[in-house]
Amino acid sequence: MNSKIITLGMLAVAAVAVGCSALPAAAPDYDALAARMVRSAFRSEGIAKVERVTETDDTQKLCSAADVAGKPLDPAVAKRIEEANLKTVKWPADGRFLGDWKQGEQIAQSGRGLTWSDDTKTPNGGNCYNCHQIAPGEISFGTIGPSLYHYGKLRGVKDPNSAEARPIVEYTWGKIWNAKAYNACSNMPRSGHMGNLTEQQIRHVMALLLDPASPVNR
């Protein structure tokens, strides 16, 4: 009798052990794992810091998660992201939206800045050509974003300082400052929000896009 009881007890313990071993393991924290991998594979040097990759805001986290899942953001979440980012847009302190299109062209065609070998005293470029066509004379340009050729002309901007042009002028400024204010998971850099371009540099790029004398609109 005792041997039967012992045997049954051992079988019960074994069954419990097997059952426990069959339980799924807790899912790992993939974000923390990715951060550790980045820190172990990269190092900060000069102005290029590892934190640029490992420390992201909620907007980027939500967009990255949607990209990994292969699904678009929930419309309500996307709207919340856009509203939050729109609040970060800083409008021109003096009310002037346009600068010099010639300087804007140089900024748009420059991809320099934010690498370990760059000096913080050297202005960053806009790197616009890497994603957009700017003028028909370009030898090469990226196609991630739409062509910017005739940007102001196609939108009927004859006088960028007129009341009629104000809506498109403000939209363009906001889009350059923080593109995610208008498209939650836009691939376009948040040039003003992230400090990639100064307010004055954005004025110059605005002139490139909207000044009728700019090669963009000729």
Rank of each mutant, 00 (worst) to 15 (best):
R96G: 02
A179G: 09
A179V: 02
P212C: 11
V68T: 11
L114T: 11
D211G: 00
H193D: 15
I5T: 14
G192H: 03
S186R: 08
G19K: 05
A181I: 01
S110M: 05
L114E: 12
P123N: 03
T7P: 02
D119M: 01
R112D: 13
Q200H: 07
M1A: 14
D58Y: 11
G19A: 14
N127W: 11
K71T: 15
P75F: 09
R112E: 12
K158P: 05
S162F: 02
S3K: 12
T54W: 06
S44C: 00
A17Q: 12
I134K: 08
E55L: 13
V157W: 01
N217S: 04
V169Y: 07
A135D: 07
V53C: 06
Q201N: 03
P215N: 03
K158F: 05
E170K: 10
K153Y: 13
W91D: 00
W101F: 04
A66G: 07
A78F: 07
L210Q: 03
E55R: 14
S64L: 14
R218W: 03
L209R: 00
L208M: 08
K79L: 01
V53I: 12
C131L: 03
A27S: 14
N187I: 13
N187D: 10
N196F: 10
G142W: 05
R112Q: 07
T59Y: 01
G142H: 00
Q106E: 13
A184K: 07
I5P: 05
A65F: 07
G99S: 00
C128I: 12
L98H: 05
E82D: 02
S64N: 15
E105M: 15
A207C: 05
V89C: 05
T59I: 02
S147A: 11
N187T: 12
D211F: 03
D211Y: 01
K102S: 01
E105D: 08
R39K: 14
T59N: 03
Q109P: 00
I5R: 13
D67P: 04
M10G: 05
G46R: 02
A184D: 01
A66C: 11
V18Y: 12
Y129P: 02
K153H: 11
D67I: 08
R80F: 04
G46V: 10
H193K: 13
A93Y: 06
S64Q: 15
V77H: 03
Q201S: 02
L208D: 00
L86V: 00
Q106I: 12
V53E: 10
V16L: 13
G195I: 05
Y30M: 08
F42V: 06
I134M: 08
L86E: 08
A35C: 00
N217F: 00
A48P: 02
K158D: 11
F97D: 01
A76K: 14
Q60T: 14
F42Q: 14
K61R: 12
W116D: 10
W101H: 05
C128P: 10
S64T: 12
N85R: 14
E45K: 10
A34V: 14
D29E: 01
Y149W: 14
F42L: 15
L148F: 11
T56Q: 14
A213E: 13
A41S: 14
A65K: 15
